[in-house]
Every structure is written in C-alpha cells, then in structure tokens.
C-alpha cells in the first residue's frame, strides 16, 4: 500500500508565558491510501493539534510530515496552500462555512481559490450535491440549514477538488446521534466508493468504529 501521510519524530511545544507545554511528543505514524483512521484520546491529549499539523494549519516544533511524499516543512505558503486546496479536504466540528455564501458557493470555494472556472465544475458539483443529498438546498445560505446539512456542505466542500485525504475534526461533535450516524455513513461511503483516505479526530467510540484503524493519543504520545 502507498503511504499518503508519513509522520516521523513529531514534537510540538507551546510556550505559555514562562512555561513550555509539550503537546505532542515523538509521534510516528504512517497512513496508507484508502485507510479510514480514527484518532481518539481524552480532551487536551493533543489529537486535534496532530490533525492540524498534518493539514499544514500549524507548524511542528520538530519532526517530519510528508503528504504524498512531499515534505511539509520545506513548503512555502503558496505550496502549502496549494496542498490544502488539492490534496486535503478539511471537515470541522462547527462546519466553518462562509455565512454569506450559499451552499453551491461554499462547496465551490476550493475551486475558486485554485483559480479554476466554476462553470467547468458544474457536473461535478451536481454529482457531489447528489452524494450529500443537498440538491434541493443548493441556493440556501448556511444559516438556513440544519447542523447536519451544514456538515454535509462541509464534506461536499472537502470533496470538490477530489483530494487524496480528508481530515475531519470531531465531524459529528456538534450533531445529534441520528444526524451523526448519517454523516458517518456518508464518510464511510466516500472512503469505500471513492477510495479517499480519511483521518478523523473523535471522542465518540461509535464514530471511531467507522474507521478501519484507531490511533490512541494520550498525553501527547501515541499509545
């Protein structure tokens, strides 16, 4: 299997005034293409920080992260942003949609940022809207949608550029259990049918069970 994420000797330390807090200590992980990984751990264990560092949203104190074989630390802002647009799709606990853009526009954001033409993605958009079952709601703004629908928009946005990897931070943390199951089923479908690599951070055992591998993080270490 081809590794898509390789984390080696990763350390992350936060300086909080006069004290230093080691959030991640010597993390070594390899995630292969098509895997569905669940990172679990108690609050403050460092699991979300690990996810953000993998996605290039935060910098490690030391260590190496390779996405599709490319070293993250050697990338500048333009290369890193390009990687986030093309290789990674993010799904957040609080959906993080742009409130003044409608469903279609929110989904097409990575395309716009990639300087591509929206009209070239018409078919793909329709396809994805079908997958997340939001065709009827495509002209609505986020505040007109339920939590589950908003999270499905976030997932659709993560898919539009056909990224290799989807990183999800507590994707059902803000949803009721029924909606949570719907979202997890959707992620599983994407993993199985589209062969996307999914890495989710979760508190929920049920959600974690949707993955085919669980990584436990405790006190900044993989246990």
């Amino acid at each position: 299997m081809k590794p898509v994420i390789e984390v080696k000797n990763l350390f992350k330390t936060y300086n909080l005034g006069s004290t230093c807090v080691d959030v991640l200590k010597d993390i070594n992980i390899t995630i292969n293409k098509g895997e569905f990984i669940s990172i679990m751990g108690p609050s403050g264990s460092g699991k979300s920080t690990l996810l953000y560092i993998i996605g290039g949203l935060d910098k490690p104190t030391s260590g190496s992260i390779k996405i599709n074989g490319n070293e993250l630390s050697s990338m500048n802002d333009v290369e890193e942003s390009e990687m986030r647009r093309r290789d990674i799709g993010f799904v957040f606990q609080f959906y993080n949609l742009i409130p003044n853009l409608n469903v279609e526009e929110n989904i097409l954001l990575p395309i716009l940022l990639d300087r591509k033409k929206m009209k070239d993605y018409k078919e793909k958009l329709e396809d994805i809207l079908g997958i997340v079952s939001l065709w009827e709601r495509r002209h609505h703004t986020p505040r007109e949608l339920s939590g589950g629908q908003q999270q499905r928009v976030a997932i659709a946005r993560a898919l539009i550029n056909d990224p290799e990897i989807i990183l999800a931070d507590e994707p059902i943390g803000n949803l009721d259990s029924k909606t949570g199951i719907e979202v997890m089923e959707l992620l599983r479908k994407i993993n199985l049918e589209r062969q996307r690599t999914i890495v989710q951070v979760t508190h929920s055992r049920e959600a974690a069970d949707y993955g085919n591998r669980i990584i436990n993080v405790k006190d900044g270490r993989v246990s």
Binding site: M83, L109, L113
Partner: peptide, 16 residues
C-alpha cells in the same frame, strides 16, 4: 476572522 481562517484552511494563500 473565522471566515478568513476557513479560507486559509481550505487553501487560500496569504497573498490571496
């Protein structure tokens, strides 16, 4: 701020 962070998280460059 949050919207700008979302833009950045999905690949918007600083200069963009």
């Amino acid at each position: 701020k949050q919207s700008f962070a979302v833009f950045r998280s999905i690949g918007m460059e600083k200069r963009q």
